[in-house]
Amino acid sequence: MSEIDSAPYRIAAQPYYRPVGNEVDLYTAAYAARMPMMLKGPTGCGKSRFVEYMAWKLKRPLITVACNEDMTAADLIGRFLLDINGTTWRDGPLTLAARMGAICYLDEVVEARQDTVVVIHSLTDHRRTLPLEKKGEVVEAHPDFQVVISYNPGYQSLTKDLKPSTRQRFGAMVFDFPNPDVETEIVAHEAGVDSITAVKLVEVAQRSRNLRGHGLDEGISTRLLVYAGRLIAMGIPPADACRTALVRPLTDDPDMQDTLDAAVDTFFG
């Protein structure tokens, strides 16, 4: 088989990522050992950006799969397709990454059905192989190949959880929202706002996160803070930007919206 062109899957420019601990060193060591990795943390806390940054730093191509409940094993490994020449095999993203030596990132993996997730098992233990039963081929993973999965533990349930047989194939890193000073630095950089505005946005987020389990499943994410900051940078009044990017996406409950609107008015009223 001819060599696969990895150029479309390489991160050309350095993604902005602000380390908050020793996560870069930990992941670098895990990749050197080709240890499959599991990233756990709330929505919008930087897991996907971290994977992009590490792919860039390690100079590896990155293939990302947004998992969902309708995804089948064939969507991951590939299928035969009809074309003008008859039937042609088309590799799925997992197979392509294994052949290429890419990092394969399965984002929000618990959204996928468990019978779909098990196809990664043979790639995440000592075998590092992927059987393509329909094609009658066993793919030997490239030496540089690695699987990374992520999910939000806050959304776990009995129907959306990883089997122990899957969990115990991975090392794990836990992510959370950074401390206020670091988060302020991130928001100011990513949104292009001044530090005073960034501080106020982070304060609003802190208020919302204190309500987790008291009317909110999740607090305002760093991602949403960046969205609000970008609206402000474009000239939208701060209170309007916050309601549009922070409050209304988070909840449909009128009382909770009023509570969050009051927090916005405290800092931007």
Rank of each mutant, 00 (worst) to 15 (best):
M1C: 08
S2M: 10
A7C: 04
P8T: 00
A12E: 14
A13D: 14
P15H: 08
G21M: 05
G21I: 03
N22L: 08
A29K: 08
A29P: 02
Y31D: 04
R34P: 02
M35A: 12
P36W: 03
P36K: 06
K40L: 15
G41R: 01
P42V: 01
K47L: 05
F50P: 00
V51M: 03
V51D: 00
A55C: 09
K57E: 09
K59H: 15
P61R: 04
I63A: 09
I63D: 08
T64M: 11
T64R: 13
T64C: 06
A66M: 10
N68G: 13
M71C: 09
T72Y: 06
A73C: 02
A74E: 15
D75M: 06
I77N: 03
R79D: 04
L81K: 14
T87S: 15
T88F: 08
G92R: 00
P93E: 05
P93S: 10
L96V: 01
A98S: 13
A102C: 08
Y105D: 00
E111H: 12
A112C: 02
Q114W: 03
D115K: 13
T124S: 15
D125G: 11
R128A: 05
T129H: 12
P131V: 01
P131D: 04
L132K: 06
L132W: 05
K134P: 00
V138Q: 12
A141W: 08
A141C: 14
H142C: 05
D144L: 10
F145K: 07
V148F: 08
G154L: 10
Y155N: 13
Q156A: 10
S157F: 02
K160T: 04
K163I: 02
R167T: 05
Q168N: 15
V174L: 15
D176S: 13
N179A: 12
D181S: 13
H189S: 12
I196P: 01
T197I: 15
T197V: 14
A198C: 07
V202L: 11
V204P: 13
Q206S: 13
G215N: 10
L216E: 02
E218A: 13
G219R: 09
R223K: 10
L224Y: 06
L225P: 11
V226W: 06
A228I: 00
I232T: 01
G235R: 11
G235I: 06
I236Q: 12
A239T: 07
A241P: 01
V247C: 11
V247L: 09
P249R: 11
D255P: 02
Q257G: 03
T259Y: 05
L260K: 03
A262E: 15
A263G: 02
D265V: 05
F268D: 04
G269H: 09
